[in-house]
Amino acid sequence: MTLQAMLIVAAILFCIGLYGALARRNVIAVFMSIEIMFNSVNLTLVALGRYVAPHALAADIESALTGQVFAVFIIAVAAAEVALGLGIVFALYRNTESVDLTEAAQMRR
């Protein structure tokens, strides 16, 4: 297991998530894909934190934890995003009886 391998796996996950986010009709499926992208980003951050030495490492050993701190924040923000996003999905569903994103184009003009 190397850093490059880890990064490539994370990149593959990210691109799969991107594809899903762009190519699915169902808004919940889009959500799932976005979660996959979040996860891959977290993975990248932690991997870089694990293998790559920050500049301040010699002086402050805790700077090795920067990647993990970022991941923690991202998880927290993702949780908030899910809460609000699902709220929007419910609102959309209540108004249009549908969770199909291609039909949610009322704001076009």
Binding site: L18, A21, L22, V30, L101, A105, Q106, M107, R108, R109
Partner: peptide, 13 residues
Amino acid sequence: QNGQVQWYGVMIA
């Protein structure tokens, strides 16, 4: 500007 969020996503990408 067709109102399709995912189309916009493709453009952003």
